[in-house]
């Protein structure tokens, strides 16, 4: 098991009567890419601020790279952290190169490496232009370049893909993957669940400041119990016998030649095996595991019911 870069033990943060984070236990490990998922106000940004040491917990303990944020030595930890806030707006009169130079110097990093950072995020050609002329996507890329200054060991990204086009999003996740391979802990918060599929190792779901789920995407799919949908196209005149999948799945006719089979994720292979063994003449087959949105909604419903 990789060692923990970030450790939260029974952490709560209260703003007056509001519990922004409530009794949270959490560990993030080296080389792990973790998505922090939750609706607006679920506590994602508060959690990131706690990890950054910008706010102090009302209760509990936090350690980042083995140091508590209240400790004097946390300044050194900040050198090894990268952060991209949500919707950051850099001074419009500064050029991209000047923005990076300012933050590099604050982190005691040589300005000479900034060109490579700008190339890495794909805006090197705009380095000499003022931020005022940047598109939203370019500003976000500049923010990412800023977060990568000093090759951080812990990278916290708050809604990092907001405003990025699909191509930029793809290259963003390529950088995240590369960082993970180099041993960086990456935590990214998002509420666009569809885009984190295959991009992260673990998903943590928050609701009203509480952790309601924590695991790999497959773990969460299992946890939700949301059915896998198998759509089967049948040859003309063929009917699926109702008893064939009894006790294994639920079937319903979509039209004369299409049947939708709903089964648990774990039984989906059994269902397919059964269909093939029965030699049902199939015209086509389409398997759709529950989407992350479905899983998220289902887990929230279950949590609310408890």
């Amino acid at each position: 098991m990789m060692s923990a870069s970030v450790r939260l033990s029974s952490v709560s943060k209260q703003y007056g009567p509001l519990h922004a984070v409530a009794g949270l236990n959490l560990e993030l490990h080296e080389a792990e890419r973790v998505a922090l998922v939750g609706h607006n106000g679920a506590g994602k940004s508060t959690l990131i601020k706690l990890m950054l040491g910008v706010i102090r917990p009302t209760e509990g303990h936090i350690e980042v790279l083995g140091v508590e944020p209240a400790h004097r030595g946390f300044a050194a930890v900040r050198m090894a952290m990268g952060f991209l806030p949500e919707n950051v707006v850099f001074p419009p009169s500064m050029t991209g190169a000047e923005v990076l130079s300012f933050y590099s110097r604050l982190k005691h990093q040589p300005v000479s490496r900034n060109r490579a950072l700008l190339e890495r995020v794909g805006i090197a050609e705009a380095a000499g232009r003022s931020v005022r002329t940047y598109s939203k996507g370019m500003r976000q890329r500049l923010g990412l370049a800023q977060a990568l200054i000093g090759e951080p060991r812990v990278l916290l990204l708050d809604e990092p893909t907001t405003g990025l086009d699909p191509e930029s999003r793809q290259s963003f996740y390529e950088i995240v993957t590369e960082l993970g391979q180099r041993g960086t802990t990456v935590l990214l918060s998002t509420h666009v669940l569809a885009e984190i599929e295959h991009q992260v190792d673990r998903v943590i779901m928050l609701d009203h400041g509480r952790k309601v789920a924590d695991g790999t995407l497959s773990d969460l799919r299992r946890l939700s119990g949301f059915p896998t949908r198998i759509r089967v196209g049948l040859a003309t005149g063929v009917r699926l016998h109702p008893a064939l999948l009894a006790g294994m799945a639920e079937c319903r006719d979509i039209d004369e030649r299409t049947v939708e089979i709903l089964c648990s994720n774990a039984r989906s292979l059994d269902v397919l095996r059964c269909l093939l063994n029965a030699s049902v003449p199939l015209a086509g087959i389409e398997i759709a595991p529950p989407s992350l949105d479905d899983v998220y909604v289902d887990i929230l419903r279950r949590t609310a019911a408890e």
């Binding site: 910008v54 707006v89 604050l106």
Partner: peptide, 13 residues
């Protein structure tokens, strides 16, 4: 308001 204060405070300053 622009989000740069939170970013500044994440630096050793």
């Amino acid at each position: 308001d622009r989000g740069t204060m939170l970013l500044l405070l994440s630096y050793p300053v």
